[in-house]
């Protein structure tokens, strides 16, 4: 630092230069800087900023789009599940109804069949009874004629005589 002070003193003696030598560099540098701001604004900040903003917008729209689609898909899934549950309930009811119907029909048919069988059995019994009666009757007649014949054979002569 000794050197610099010495040099400073030396140049102050020369009357020109030095560390705090303010001259036309200042306004020209200011103008140059303002031009740089304008140039960089056109070349750098605007296009890059636009790129960043565009990307942000792109990502945001995609994100909202995706969210919308997701909620839509979830709604659809819920709806399908509901429909599925509804259909399952209906089918179960249908099966239960059908089973009940089948049971009822079976019971009815069994009852009918039993009735018929009963009726047929009764009919058969009746026929049997009748035939028995007839057989007994004819048998009685035959017994009578036979017994008469026997009596005739045994006592025929006497009676005739």
């Amino acid at each position: 630092m000794i050197h610099s002070t010495i040099l400073l003193a030396a140049e102050a003696a020369e009357g020109k230069g030095g560390l705090f030598d303010i001259d036309a560099t200042l306004p020209l540098m200011a103008v140059q800087f303002v031009i740089l701001v304008i140039l960089l604004n056109a070349l750098f900040y605007k296009p890059i900023g636009k790129a960043i903003d565009d990307r942000d917008a792109y990502i945001r729209t995609n994100l909202t789009d995706a969210k919308e689609r997701l909620s839509k898909a979830e709604n659809l899934a819920k709806q399908y599940e509901q429909e599925l549950a509804e259909t399952r309930r209906q089918s179960q009811k249908l099966i239960a109804d059908a089973e009940e119907d089948a049971k009822r029909i079976a019971a009815q048919q069994i009852a009918e069949a039993q009735q018929e069988a009963q009726a047929q059995r009764e009919q058969a019994q009746r026929d049997l009874d009748q035939q028995k009666q007839e057989a007994l009757q004819s048998l009685e007649q035959q017994v009578e004629s036979l017994s008469r014949q026997i009596v005739e054979k045994l006592l025929g002569t006497q009676t005739v005589s």
Partner: peptide, 16 residues
């Protein structure tokens, strides 16, 4: 080590 020495350009009667 050079401190405070300037490379002067002359622009009209201005020094930069």
């Amino acid at each position: 080590l050079e401190v405070g020495k300037q490379f002067y350009w002359h622009l009209g009667n201005l020094e930069i």
